[in-house]
Amino acid sequence: MSDRYIGLMAGTSLDGVDAVLAEIRGDRDIRTLAWNYHPFEAELRATLQRHCFGDAIPLPLLGELDAWLGETFARAALSLLREANVPPGRIRAIGSHGQTLHHGPDARHPYTLQIGDPNRIAALTGMTTVADFRRRDIAVGGQGAPLVPAFHRAVFSHSGEDRAVLNLGGIANLTLLPGDGRPVTGFDTGPGNTLLDAWFRRHHPQGHWDEAGRWAAQGSCNPALLRRLLADPYFQRRPPKSTGPERFSLDWLAGHLRHCPDLPPEDVQATLIDLTAVSATAALRRTLPGASQLLVCGGGVHNPVLMAALARHSPCPVTTTAACGIDPDQVEALAFAWLAWRTLAGKPGNLPAVTGACEEVILGAVYPV
């Protein structure tokens, strides 16, 4: 049986799909063979930006988006295999995260919803597909997120050394890896790139994100606004906890900007940089004060202004996961390839100490071919 897996990850930044081809022979025996990034076509991106994380979406559009994304994920997987010159028959399975439409772990009836029809992925690629990873954790009392700390434990933990991993996606999540055998923990710290991107698009409608943080670099952090933003109760809430753009939205930001009405927009952007950096590093200081290094991954590593802010505020040296042999752009997609491997091996994929679930469970649904 093949030991090659594909991982597909589309995050809350709503920009495209990261696809990784990996050889997985055990929990720590993982080798990346190929990687590519498949950007969303303009119409799909615009539709997602209008409707993801909002309060309403027309039912016909929901169905169409589910199918549209499934086809997009399938194309990303097939494109990756063409570039790697690997036939689909050599792949054991695809692990597809899907695209989060809404995340409500604290609702009266907790839920999370990822779309990107895995039936389409399996049918169009001819490869067994594992998907819908988060809802089983919620079914046993968990937050359904973050799920990547189990993978971080497998590939980044080190006996005798406390380490932390910060994923800077649309939302930032932190994994704490004690070196003395204590349980691994992790949680969403708050906004990563989601507010930065949304505020940038508000003032640059033709753009998608603040390339290399250049616009933020033109502004200055406003301490009064930063204090107001950091006063949100989420930042002081004890884990387990997870969040999303449903909470940290432009509407949330607008409520605080009413008290600072004349700020230049680039100063707001600079303040949002510090919001991400300070909320993440303060959480690290509270929860793993002896960390020897902070390993960063996700799209935020390409924003030097954000990385400099992290280095300024962090209680320990900041580097990227490349220092441990995994490209920071590949970590999350690789995690979902690994989770697919665990699902098919009959192994649990969640960490109750992270998500708050009452037990370890096998994650995901399998769509065979």
Rank of each mutant, 00 (worst) to 15 (best):
G219F: 02
A198R: 07
G144F: 05
P261L: 08
L344E: 01
R108C: 05
P183G: 06
G325K: 02
D66R: 10
N36S: 12
P146L: 02
L78Y: 01
A280S: 10
A123E: 10
S249N: 15
G179M: 05
A231F: 08
C316R: 04
L275A: 04
L44D: 00
A154L: 03
Q99W: 03
L195Q: 05
G364C: 11
L306F: 03
G186Q: 10
P205E: 07
L288S: 02
L69E: 01
F235C: 07
G16Y: 01
V268I: 07
M1Y: 03
A131T: 04
A322L: 09
G325M: 07
L14S: 01
N167P: 08
T185V: 09
G255F: 13
A280Y: 01
T129L: 02
H302Q: 11
D106A: 14
L124E: 08
H313M: 03
C52L: 01
R238A: 15
A335D: 04
L62Q: 08
E43N: 11
R286C: 06
L44P: 02
D106N: 15
G89L: 15
D232S: 05
Q269W: 12
T32S: 09
I94V: 09
Y111V: 10
E83C: 10
A365H: 15
L263M: 09
D329M: 02
T271G: 06
L344T: 01
Q269M: 10
T125M: 06
V305G: 08
D188E: 11
A231H: 12
G89H: 07
A291T: 08
P265E: 15
P348R: 13
A77I: 03
T100Y: 09
T189V: 09
R153C: 10
L48P: 01
R312E: 14
A77W: 00
Y367Q: 07
A231E: 13
Q143R: 11
Q293R: 12
R4Q: 13
